[in-house]
Design a protein around this nucleic acid. Sequence first.
DNA 1: ATAATGGTTCGGTTCTGTCGAACGGCTGAG
DNA 2: CTCAGCCGTTCGACAGAACCGAACCATTAT
Lengths: 252, 252
Amino acid sequence: MSHDAASDGAIRTGARMLSVIEVLNEEGGAGVTTVADRLGIAKSTAHAHLQTLHERRYLVKRDGEYRVGLRFLDLGQAARGPWNEDGLIESKVEQLADETEMRAQFLVAEHGEAVYVYRSTGKHSVPTDSRVGVRIPLHAVSAGKAMLAQFPEERVDEVVERHGLAAVTDNTISDRAELDAELERVRERGYARNDEESWEGVRAVGAPVLTPDGEVVGGLSVSGSAHRFRPDEFSDLVMGAANEVELTMKYE
Amino acid sequence: MSHDAASDGAIRTGARMLSVIEVLNEEGGAGVTTVADRLGIAKSTAHAHLQTLHERRYLVKRDGEYRVGLRFLDLGQAARGPWNEDGLIESKVEQLADETEMRAQFLVAEHGEAVYVYRSTGKHSVPTDSRVGVRIPLHAVSAGKAMLAQFPEERVDEVVERHGLAAVTDNTISDRAELDAELERVRERGYARNDEESWEGVRAVGAPVLTPDGEVVGGLSVSGSAHRFRPDEFSDLVMGAANEVELTMKYE
DNA sequence: ATAATGGTTCGGTTCTGTCGAACGGCTGAG
DNA sequence: CTCAGCCGTTCGACAGAACCGAACCATTAT
């Protein structure tokens, strides 16, 4: 039972096909019956969708299951292309991770949510959930708050209206007034903090990356274990990195 | 002019939606009219498709153009998940690039083609076309030939039948008998060479990664400028790396 | 050997995707 | 300032496609 939600001039069949892809992604591979059940459609329908996607090379058949194929890898790389001018940001993230020996990441705001676009775990590669491509509420992470703080108020309204202020952990800011106060602090400081607001035991500092005319490009952040993470220690580094990116970036 | 090719029990509308995505990907962003023209469909139809994709958050609207969105990044990462067990292969590719000071990559065979799944350019990051996610004929690259050499003959037949043996450069093997002879050499040597068969001025050596029961997982390769690239110098390193991956890999 | 599970095929019915034309907003030219 | 042209958007009618269900295979488990 996924959201099939009809809308204005929408292509229902196309939307259904997207749902099929989403099911495969969530399940990490599935057969015809599973897809049909999860979407509440006939087996024959699910079969037709899967077959079409397979013929178009978007899926792979393995062990009798359909899985999301590598064609999406190409699309995914293309999607982050705009931020990969000569690998500028990618290398800056790696540099940050090396310098701090913490995890560093670059996030972008899309459809009112934050998306991990680049990530690097210095030498001490610690496993983490924040995989590239994952979406997370803007108000719950440092880079996200850094971006929100630079949005015009109306756009913040939009975001809150559309996604609310869900509490990811006990520390997540989930009140609008509190958020506004926090964003004001962020603007004053020039960087945002994340004090176990997205994961228990994880702290972070983040700074926005802006175009010359103040448009938000994304946000850089550095994160690490709460007990040995000193925000003041890294805030200058993060802001500096963000600044360098801003200066090096080419705008058409 | 994209392929709209009808097939058996195919979902035509869904296939069309995929074409829309492909146009956006190729154009790097486009408007309603452009998409409609390129697919030979009515503007209103293109509009409906784009709107649906946008509502589902698969597209982004910027500068009055639709672009492929970061949701595909998530799907792309999921697609290469199976080969990222604890970042095993990713780190091995990086290690190879560091040791050789050349480019190293890991490719996978999908739908009869080779796909770049991981890539690393040592310190001397040289710009290159072989971006992650890109597809290239199996017979034209070293890792691809290494994989082909391990396929059962029938599967090689399938690949050739489906994609032919297009000549990417003057050196590309484009004759079936020649390919068979080459694959035999590859099996004897244990690794494959690429002597400017995919790009002028680029040589490479590649080795296959196999499961304990001989199934092909993918292929590792190291490549560099033709004039200073000595195949013998790197063949052992590549084969060694492939071997280590095979031994470390977990199979369910 | 048989039942059960999952995949595939097929035709009729309903619904929806498609087109074309017309409208509205924006930009640039005259 | 006006008008022409371009692009995106809306709307209704028709043709055609997607959907379902039932029946048919293939494979595995009992």
